[in-house]
Amino acid sequence: TEEFVRLWREAVRHNQTLHWNGTDFIPGDEWAEEFARREEEKL
């Protein structure tokens, strides 16, 4: 979602874990980066 992408970019900028829907998205984590890339492509 647009909100997820916005929060993810913020988390990456501050190198912080994003807690989203009970899942931890960690900047630099391969799975999280791939998920975020797919979400961005949907926008």
Results as ranks from 00 to 15, higher is better:
residue 1 T to S: 14
residue 1 T to Y: 12
residue 1 T to A: 14
residue 1 T to K: 07
residue 1 T to W: 14
residue 1 T to M: 14
residue 1 T to L: 13
residue 1 T to H: 11
residue 1 T to I: 14
residue 1 T to N: 12
residue 1 T to R: 14
residue 1 T to E: 08
residue 1 T to Q: 09
residue 1 T to C: 15
residue 2 E to Q: 13
residue 2 E to M: 13
residue 2 E to R: 14
residue 2 E to I: 13
residue 2 E to W: 14
residue 2 E to T: 10
residue 2 E to N: 10
residue 2 E to P: 09
residue 2 E to F: 12
residue 2 E to V: 13
residue 2 E to Y: 13
residue 3 E to L: 12
residue 3 E to M: 11
residue 3 E to P: 02
residue 3 E to D: 12
residue 3 E to I: 11
residue 3 E to T: 12
residue 3 E to R: 08
residue 3 E to Q: 10
residue 3 E to C: 15
residue 3 E to W: 10
residue 4 F to M: 01
residue 4 F to C: 07
residue 4 F to G: 00
residue 4 F to H: 00
residue 4 F to N: 00
residue 4 F to S: 00
residue 5 V to H: 05
residue 5 V to M: 13
residue 5 V to F: 08
residue 5 V to I: 15
residue 5 V to A: 04
residue 5 V to W: 09
residue 5 V to N: 05
residue 5 V to E: 03
residue 5 V to L: 15
residue 5 V to T: 07
residue 6 R to K: 11
residue 6 R to L: 10
residue 6 R to M: 09
residue 6 R to N: 08
residue 6 R to D: 06
residue 6 R to Y: 11
residue 6 R to F: 11
residue 6 R to E: 07
residue 6 R to T: 07
residue 6 R to P: 03
residue 6 R to H: 09
residue 7 L to M: 09
residue 7 L to G: 03
residue 7 L to I: 03
residue 7 L to Y: 05
residue 7 L to R: 13
residue 7 L to P: 00
residue 7 L to Q: 09
residue 7 L to E: 04
residue 7 L to V: 02
residue 8 W to H: 01
residue 8 W to E: 01
residue 8 W to S: 01
residue 8 W to Y: 02
residue 8 W to D: 01
residue 8 W to V: 02
residue 8 W to L: 02
residue 8 W to N: 00
residue 8 W to Q: 01
residue 8 W to T: 00
residue 9 R to F: 09
residue 9 R to I: 08
residue 9 R to V: 06
residue 9 R to A: 10
residue 9 R to E: 09
residue 9 R to T: 06
residue 9 R to S: 05
residue 9 R to Y: 12
residue 9 R to W: 13
residue 10 E to W: 13
residue 10 E to P: 01
residue 10 E to I: 10
residue 10 E to Y: 10
residue 10 E to V: 06
residue 10 E to F: 08
residue 10 E to L: 11
residue 10 E to T: 05
residue 10 E to C: 14
residue 11 A to G: 00
residue 11 A to T: 02
residue 11 A to K: 02
residue 11 A to V: 02
residue 11 A to R: 02
residue 11 A to M: 03
residue 11 A to I: 02
residue 12 V to S: 06
residue 12 V to E: 04
residue 12 V to D: 01
residue 12 V to I: 10
residue 12 V to T: 06
residue 12 V to R: 09
residue 12 V to A: 05
residue 12 V to F: 04
residue 12 V to L: 09
residue 12 V to H: 05
residue 12 V to W: 06
residue 12 V to K: 14
residue 12 V to P: 00
residue 13 R to E: 12
residue 13 R to S: 11
residue 13 R to H: 09
residue 13 R to M: 14
residue 13 R to C: 15
residue 13 R to L: 15
residue 13 R to T: 11
residue 13 R to K: 15
residue 13 R to Q: 13
residue 14 H to V: 12
residue 14 H to S: 14
residue 14 H to L: 15
residue 14 H to G: 10
residue 15 N to H: 10
residue 15 N to C: 12
residue 15 N to E: 05
residue 15 N to Y: 06
residue 15 N to P: 00
residue 15 N to Q: 12
residue 15 N to V: 04
residue 15 N to M: 10
residue 15 N to R: 10
residue 15 N to G: 14
residue 16 Q to Y: 14
residue 16 Q to C: 15
residue 16 Q to A: 11
residue 16 Q to E: 11
residue 16 Q to F: 13
residue 16 Q to R: 14
residue 16 Q to T: 14
residue 16 Q to L: 14
residue 16 Q to I: 14
residue 16 Q to H: 11
residue 16 Q to S: 10
residue 16 Q to M: 14
residue 16 Q to K: 14
residue 17 T to R: 08
residue 17 T to W: 09
residue 17 T to Y: 05
residue 17 T to E: 03
residue 17 T to Q: 05
residue 17 T to M: 10
residue 17 T to I: 15
residue 17 T to P: 13
residue 18 L to E: 00
residue 18 L to W: 02
residue 18 L to Y: 02
residue 18 L to K: 00
residue 18 L to D: 00
residue 18 L to R: 00
residue 18 L to A: 03
residue 18 L to T: 01
residue 18 L to S: 00
residue 19 H to S: 12
residue 19 H to F: 08
residue 19 H to R: 13
residue 19 H to P: 03
residue 19 H to K: 10
residue 19 H to G: 03
residue 19 H to M: 06
residue 19 H to W: 08
residue 19 H to D: 03
residue 19 H to L: 07
residue 19 H to Q: 09
residue 20 W to N: 00
residue 20 W to T: 01
residue 20 W to D: 00
residue 20 W to G: 01
residue 20 W to I: 05
residue 20 W to Y: 11
residue 20 W to E: 00
residue 20 W to Q: 00
residue 20 W to P: 00
residue 21 N to H: 13
residue 21 N to S: 08
residue 21 N to M: 15
residue 21 N to W: 11
residue 21 N to L: 13
residue 21 N to G: 11
residue 21 N to Q: 15
residue 21 N to Y: 12
residue 21 N to D: 09
residue 22 G to V: 02
residue 22 G to Y: 04
residue 22 G to W: 04
residue 22 G to C: 11
residue 22 G to Q: 05
residue 22 G to M: 05
residue 22 G to I: 04
residue 22 G to H: 07
residue 22 G to F: 06
residue 22 G to S: 06
residue 22 G to P: 00
residue 23 T to W: 14
residue 23 T to H: 14
residue 23 T to A: 12
residue 23 T to E: 10
residue 23 T to C: 15
residue 23 T to M: 15
residue 23 T to N: 12
residue 23 T to D: 07
residue 23 T to S: 10
residue 24 D to A: 12
residue 24 D to G: 03
residue 24 D to K: 10
residue 24 D to E: 11
residue 24 D to H: 07
residue 24 D to F: 12
residue 25 F to I: 03
residue 25 F to G: 01
residue 25 F to D: 01
residue 25 F to Y: 14
residue 25 F to A: 00
residue 25 F to T: 01
residue 25 F to H: 07
residue 25 F to P: 01
residue 26 I to V: 13
residue 26 I to K: 13
residue 26 I to A: 12
residue 26 I to F: 09
residue 26 I to H: 12
residue 26 I to S: 10
residue 26 I to P: 05
residue 27 P to M: 03
residue 27 P to H: 02
residue 27 P to E: 01
residue 27 P to V: 04
residue 27 P to I: 04
residue 27 P to K: 02
residue 27 P to Q: 03
residue 27 P to Y: 02
residue 27 P to W: 02
residue 28 G to A: 02
residue 28 G to K: 03
residue 28 G to V: 01
residue 28 G to M: 03
residue 28 G to P: 03
residue 28 G to Q: 03
residue 28 G to L: 03
residue 28 G to H: 03
residue 28 G to T: 04
residue 29 D to N: 11
residue 29 D to I: 07
residue 29 D to A: 07
residue 29 D to E: 12
residue 29 D to Q: 09
residue 29 D to V: 10
residue 30 E to F: 12
residue 30 E to I: 13
residue 30 E to A: 15
residue 30 E to N: 10
residue 30 E to V: 13
residue 30 E to Y: 11
residue 30 E to G: 10
residue 30 E to P: 15
residue 30 E to H: 12
residue 31 W to S: 06
residue 31 W to Q: 08
residue 31 W to Y: 08
residue 31 W to N: 06
residue 31 W to K: 08
residue 31 W to F: 10
residue 31 W to P: 03
residue 31 W to M: 08
residue 31 W to E: 07
residue 31 W to A: 09
residue 31 W to D: 06
residue 31 W to V: 08
residue 31 W to L: 06
residue 32 A to Q: 02
residue 32 A to Y: 03
residue 32 A to N: 01
residue 32 A to P: 02
residue 32 A to I: 03
residue 32 A to D: 01
residue 32 A to K: 01
residue 32 A to M: 03
residue 33 E to V: 08
residue 33 E to P: 00
residue 33 E to K: 06
residue 33 E to N: 07
residue 33 E to H: 10
residue 33 E to I: 11
residue 33 E to F: 05
residue 33 E to C: 11
residue 34 E to F: 07
residue 34 E to H: 08
residue 34 E to A: 14
residue 34 E to K: 09
residue 34 E to W: 12
residue 34 E to C: 15
residue 34 E to G: 09
residue 34 E to R: 10
residue 34 E to P: 01
residue 34 E to T: 09
residue 34 E to M: 12
residue 34 E to N: 12
residue 35 F to E: 02
residue 35 F to D: 00
residue 35 F to Q: 04
residue 35 F to A: 04
residue 35 F to R: 04
residue 35 F to M: 06
residue 35 F to L: 04
residue 35 F to Y: 14
residue 35 F to S: 01
residue 35 F to W: 10
residue 36 A to R: 02
residue 36 A to L: 05
residue 36 A to D: 01
residue 36 A to G: 06
residue 36 A to T: 03
residue 36 A to E: 01
residue 36 A to S: 04
residue 36 A to V: 10
residue 36 A to F: 12
residue 37 R to M: 08
residue 37 R to T: 05
residue 37 R to Q: 07
residue 37 R to C: 14
residue 37 R to F: 05
residue 37 R to S: 07
residue 38 R to V: 09
residue 38 R to D: 04
residue 38 R to E: 05
residue 38 R to G: 08
residue 38 R to M: 11
residue 38 R to P: 03
residue 38 R to S: 10
residue 38 R to F: 07
residue 38 R to C: 13
residue 39 E to D: 02
residue 39 E to R: 08
residue 39 E to C: 15
residue 39 E to Y: 14
residue 39 E to M: 15
residue 39 E to I: 15
residue 39 E to Q: 15
residue 39 E to N: 08
residue 39 E to L: 15
residue 40 E to A: 12
residue 40 E to D: 05
residue 40 E to Q: 12
residue 40 E to R: 07
residue 40 E to I: 15
residue 40 E to F: 14
residue 40 E to P: 04
residue 40 E to K: 07
residue 40 E to N: 08
residue 40 E to M: 15
residue 40 E to L: 14
residue 40 E to V: 13
residue 40 E to Y: 13
residue 41 E to V: 11
residue 41 E to M: 14
residue 41 E to S: 12
residue 41 E to N: 11
residue 41 E to D: 10
residue 41 E to I: 12
residue 41 E to A: 14
residue 41 E to Y: 12
residue 41 E to G: 09
residue 41 E to L: 14
residue 42 K to N: 07
residue 42 K to H: 06
residue 42 K to G: 05
residue 42 K to A: 09
residue 42 K to R: 12
residue 42 K to Q: 07
residue 42 K to F: 07
residue 42 K to M: 08
residue 43 L to H: 06
residue 43 L to Q: 06
residue 43 L to S: 06
residue 43 L to R: 05
residue 43 L to Y: 09
residue 43 L to N: 05
residue 43 L to F: 09
residue 43 L to W: 10
residue 43 L to E: 04
residue 43 L to I: 09
residue 43 L to V: 07
residue 43 L to M: 11
